[in-house]
Design a protein around this nucleic acid. Sequence first.
DNA 1: ATAAAAACGATAATCACTATCGTTTTTATT
DNA 2: AATAAAAACGATAGTGATTATCGTTTTTAT
Lengths: 136, 136
Amino acid sequence: MKAMKYSRQRESIKEFLEGRTDHPTADMIYMNIRKLYPNISLGTVYRNLSLLVSIGEISKIAGTDGAERFDPNTKPHYHFVCRECGCVQDISLEPVKALDGLAAEGFDGSIEGHTTLFYGTCSECKKKLLDKPIAL
Amino acid sequence: MKAMKYSRQRESIKEFLEGRTDHPTADMIYMNIRKLYPNISLGTVYRNLSLLVSIGEISKIAGTDGAERFDPNTKPHYHFVCRECGCVQDISLEPVKALDGLAAEGFDGSIEGHTTLFYGTCSECKKKLLDKPIAL
DNA sequence: ATAAAAACGATAATCACTATCGTTTTTATT
DNA sequence: AATAAAAACGATAGTGATTATCGTTTTTAT
């Protein structure tokens, strides 16, 4: 009933995301795709991003302040967000499924999973903070 | 330099939140406070909520879709969000601080903590889903 | 080659939230 | 109690991310 048709815009969005680990926002993706398709619309970027998410080809990272971020890696994994610069990075820790069981104890609903966002200071910002003189 | 002055609007917001475990949004709080102060402004609600958060009297729950939610419980704890109705509930599991150490392994930034949001179906919605006939 | 419908670009609308600003309250000091 | 500085207010405009609308263009099965 709703067969998906090919679109080069969607293809280029997927290609742009492929291999990336910086989890860009819709706007960052828009800015970059515009170099290839100068009159692509921001709405088209949003439409295709949610389309790609809905068919499971990319995933969306929620919980980060401001804009949503997109990830070509669809396997569940944890993320880290830097409190200094706001950058988002992958955490190479296998999701701790045991947490779901622990959380389910004494809980009357059913728990299907969890999302975890670690926060702190990324290595880049740690360096910068060391170089910076102490503020008075 | 910036002494905080009393305000009944702020007081009533704090009182409204006190004892609640449904984690209302700013708008839900606004709707309720209006019964007591019919011409309170939504801006006043937002201003006081962030003020109360900044002095540590209440806390803000991020990561839930749409609007931010507020919690009178300032001790760090996990939350659950229902995928059916969107309600947010407390999880009575002590934050697993060991996760931070695990995540830090092989990570070059520094991890200060994490937020975790469990998802699934709340008990209310489980009941409703059982009563509902299977869709064709 | 045709035509149905999916996707497009442009743009308006929505939603949650923040900022501005003139007026009202609070509160420390007379 | 009167005063006055500043914090807080209500009304409202503005912002930023996202979604909806709509007439036109592309895709694709026939």
